[in-house]
């Protein structure tokens, strides 16, 4: 059996106000090791729920999830790192301390410092190392959150709409940085978004989620960085939109 993350018949049902919400229904997926998968779906389609299950923050109501075992033997280090939809930085820690947050007590001081330095350099945060979270911009905060997760070197990196709250230009730049990070680290990436262009720009494969079910799954055999305006993306874009809105793309005017 190939290495990677496997979900088999996974369902998640939340109780809600006397009734229940079927956030995910009978989901089966395989994410090969080292791949970059994008989960695309509308608001409420179950994207965050999927990541929370993978990160072990929730248990599936039904089905099985198998994750790669923790390599590197760093004690209780989890194999999966999650970057939340909001940065969720500790307001009492500086940028540097936030990045180092997961290393404390796990790595020796020197090794931890080296790791944090590398992370700050990688994410271009060196000039802001001693700033507190409310002194930095949203895009920077999101990068710090990414750095905090990458710092403990998880085998799998889950990102929940990490760029959702950012302006177009910053988003474009960080998309490029994320693609570059994936290339350099060779980790398994799973990124959640509701932005079709972002999905087309980043994913080796796109999983389209609609009302808790996989509506479509397509591979994008194009190397990154990509120019999604090129003609070969036209059929891919059409197919993705088809899966989400049944082809009825609402016209703007």
């Amino acid at each position: 059996m190939a290495e990677g993350i496997r979900l088999q018949g996974v369902s998640k049902i939340y109780p809600l106000a006397g009734g229940e919400v079927r956030a995910l229904e009978d989901l089966s997926l395989f994410l090969p090791r080292g791949s970059f998968t994008v989960v695309l779906g509308r608001s409420g389609s179950g994207k965050t729920t999927l990541l929370r299950l993978l990160a072990g923050l929730e248990e599936p109501t039904k089905g099985r999830i198998s994750l790669p075992r923790n390599e590197g033997g760093e004690g209780k280090k989890p194999a999966v790192g999650l970057v939340f939809q909001e940065p969720r930085l500790m307001p009492w820690l500086t940028v540097e301390e936030n990045v180092a947050f997961s290393l404390k007590g796990r790595l020796g001081k020197e090794e931890a410092t080296a790791r944090v330095e590398a992370m700050l350099a990688l994410l271009g945060l060196e000039d802001f190392r001693s700033a507190y979270p409310d002194q930095i911009s949203g895009g920077m905060a999101q990068r710090v959150a990414l750095g905090r997760t990458l710092a403990f070197d998880p085998a799998v990196v889950l990102m929940d709409e990490p760029l959702g709250a950012l302006d177009y230009f910053t988003r474009r730049r960080l998309q490029g940085e994320i693609a570059e990070l994936h290339r350099r680290t060779g980790k398994t990436f799973l990124l959640v978004t509701h932005d079709v262009e972002e999905a087309l720009a980043l994913g080796d494969s796109i999983v389209v989620l609609e009302a808790g079910r996989v509506a479509d799954c397509l591979d994008i055999p194009v190397s990154r960085p990509r120019e999604t305006g090129r003609p070969e993306f036209l059929p891919l874009r059409r197919r993705v939109l088809e899966a989400i809105v049944g082809g009825e793309h609402p016209p703007l005017s």
Binding site: A55, G56, K77, P78, G81, F84, R88, S102, G105
Partner: peptide, 16 residues
């Protein structure tokens, strides 16, 4: 609670 959840996702024990 969202900050505490960060700790959980990073594998911190309850004491930590």
């Amino acid at each position: 609670r969202k900050l505490i959840e960060v700790g959980r996702s990073l594998g911190l024990s309850e004491g930590e």
